[in-house]
């Protein structure tokens, strides 16, 4: 991984799609430049990440943390829907999932 890690606009556009952000053309261009610099700087992690080193995903190693199977208090319907941008009856309302072409 010693080569430069540039991210072109097309890649940024694809990542934005995965991340569901409707970036503008300008943002895509700007990000592709900024992120290339950042990635260049942080890609050095692979220099020391040799196969013999195990990965750590939790800073403090715990295991088998469970909860007893006992139902607790739920939100009221009004609480549940209190932040909803739009509702219909007691359900959250969203736009059509498929576009017209489908």
């Amino acid at each position: 991984m010693s080569e430069s890690h540039s991210l072109d606009s097309e890649q940024v556009a694809h990542l934005a799609e995965l991340a569901r952000i409707a970036l503008t053309e300008d943002e895509i261009k700007k990000l592709s430049g900024e992120l290339s610099v950042i990635i260049d700087a942080i890609a050095k992690v692979s220099e020391v990440a040799t196969p013999d080193v195990p990965a750590t995903s939790h800073p403090i190693a715990l295991q088998n943390v469970f909860r007893p199977d006992v139902p607790g208090k739920t939100l009221t319907v009004e609480q549940a829907l209190s932040g909803a941008p739009e509702r219909e009856g007691d359900r959250f309302k969203v736009s059509a999932i498929l576009g017209e072409e489908q």
Binding site: M1, V45, A49, V53, P54, A55, T56, S57
Partner: peptide, 15 residues
Amino acid sequence: DAYYGSAQKVRTLVQ
């Protein structure tokens, strides 16, 4: 592997 995986290994080294 190159990024997230490696970063988690660096975490081990830091520890």
